[in-house]
Amino acid sequence: MDPFVVLVLCLSCLLLLSIWRQSSGRGKLPPGPTPLPVIGNILQIDIKDVSKSLTNLSKIYGPVFTLYFGLERMVVLHGYEVVKEALIDLGEEFSGRGHFPLAERANRGFGIVFSNGKRWKEIRRFSLMTLRNFGMGKRSIEDRVQEEARCLVEELRKTKASPCDPTFILGCAPCNVICSIIFQKRFDYKDQQFLNLMEKLNENIRIVSTPWIQICNNFPTIIDYFPGTHNKLLKNLAFMESDILEKVKEHQESMDINNPRDFIDCFLIKMEKEKQNQQSEFTIENLVITAADLLGAGTETTSTTLRYALLLLLKHPEVTAKVQEEIERVIGRNRSPCMQDRGHMPYTDAVVHEVQRYIDLIPTSLPHAVTCDVKFRNYLIPKGTTILTSLTSVLHDNKEFPNPEMFDPRHFLDEGGNFKKSNYFMPFSAGKRICVGEGLARMELFLFLTFILQNFNLKSLIDPKDLDTTPVVNGFASVPPFYQLCFIPV
């Protein structure tokens, strides 16, 4: 058959498939802009700032609406009420993970971030239990974070109060905490193996944040037939998995079943207990991918939040002064901060919360999916439909947070200066898919920041009023603009 005829037939089939998918069930789905064949609503979305586009569309179609990214149908949730109703009140029905062709290629359905069903539930339950087990290797997770915080302070001392970009050092600290939990080992910041790991993690975040990856996920045929950065992403992930597998083999040879040292040991012990169960989800494949998931999810998000926190503290020296006064009063100079201190430091706690609220790190979270046909607000959402959640619409709700575009710790303080919780605080998402490392991340943010401010004054290279804190939105995360500062020993 003539190649031209084959091409026309293929394009015609794709067009018909697109029209059929977009028209099927439209009477039951939430409203939304009319999609174009094949490309859907992509032309109506700013790929570099999806969150802003969703906010604009919500003003037209309401808090629940339908979009098509290519052939992929998505239902968008915008605003606290619908997000709570879906992710919390109907948590089980909305607990699936959205379709990610690239991740599915890399992870093969294993791990904790992109798995679904029984596998996801069992691996998540085990990971939560293990991360909360403060007795691994007779050292609590808090001990590990405190140790890394001391190392971080010593690295900052080496800058000798000269101007520096904190990106690298602030990236090393949370990565080392995860390494300590998974591998029972922290690395020197100049260790070549550690630097290679950091390089792969950072490069992957840069790649994932590009519009090209959005295109690959919406048109998965590209993955096999086109060159691009997605190939580098898959190569980096394969490198990390190979490295983790080597460490798993080392653990198998040296493990003491009665004295687990780290996450890998705990997983291997669980595998041993379930070795007679042919349906067990505790396999080497799941261990390797879960460890890679924890490394990827637990490094860049925390380091970016820390980097943004220091920029905001530079911009608002009056806030920094209040935090340091609270540190001096509650902790002093002669001991290290600990998590028990947080309950006695409402202002510092409010500042950490406000940093996370203000920066809105992951504006749309990772997409969910419905696990069955769901009736939601008089609409029928078919099983498997991807759910896109606007966390921006919750964290920047102007009824809950007056002047949401302003950095103001009073958003989390009552009139008496006591810490005030808010149900709208969802930087880790909400419901059954809430970030498994939430507790660890909150511990790291509090301890790293208090250790830094206990030991250093922060000095800006320019007038604080002239510092730009506008986030650089890159399609996946909101990151701070480049800046330098000086760490002046107190």
Rank of each mutant, 00 (worst) to 15 (best):
I387E: 00
T348W: 02
L156Y: 03
T299Q: 07
A477H: 15
P337H: 01
G98T: 10
K383E: 06
L391F: 04
S422R: 03
G91R: 07
G171D: 09
L29E: 07
I452T: 08
P101N: 08
H344D: 15
K275M: 09
T364I: 15
V83C: 10
A477T: 12
V479L: 15
L234A: 07
F267W: 15
C372R: 10
L306M: 10
T371P: 05
P35G: 08
T130Q: 15
D466N: 15
R144V: 12
I488F: 10
T290I: 08
F194A: 07
R124S: 05
Q192M: 11
T34V: 11
L314K: 02
T34M: 07
K160V: 10
L388R: 04
T167F: 06
D191T: 06
E85R: 06
G332C: 01
K121P: 03
Y347A: 00
E281V: 13
I434N: 11
F69G: 07
R157H: 13
F456P: 02
P166L: 03
G137P: 12
F126S: 00
F476A: 14
T320W: 06
E415I: 09
I39C: 08
T364R: 08
S422A: 02
D46P: 06
L388A: 04
K322M: 12
F226M: 15
R150I: 11
M339T: 12
D349A: 08
R410A: 13
P409C: 04
V351D: 00
S460Q: 05
V82D: 03
L306F: 07
F263S: 00
D373V: 02
E92T: 08
K275S: 11
H230E: 04
K118A: 14
I327D: 00
D468V: 10
Y379F: 12
L361N: 03
P481S: 10
L234R: 11
M406G: 11
T386A: 08
S365G: 08
L29T: 07
N116K: 09
P464I: 12
G111V: 02
T392G: 07
F114A: 12
L413D: 00
F219S: 05
F239R: 15
G62R: 00
N259Q: 09
E325R: 14
C175E: 01
E400F: 04
S336A: 15
H344V: 08
V323G: 01
R307W: 04
V436S: 04
L233M: 09
E203G: 07
G96E: 08
T210C: 14
D466Y: 09
Q252H: 11
K28R: 15
L485K: 00
L195M: 04
L295I: 15
C151A: 14
P166C: 05
H353N: 06
E444R: 00
N116R: 11
F263G: 01
P33R: 01
S242N: 12
N378K: 09
K232F: 06
R442E: 15
K432S: 13
S58F: 05
T392Q: 07
L233C: 05
I434E: 14
F476P: 08
R73V: 06
S115L: 02
G62M: 00
P346E: 04
L29Y: 12
P464G: 09
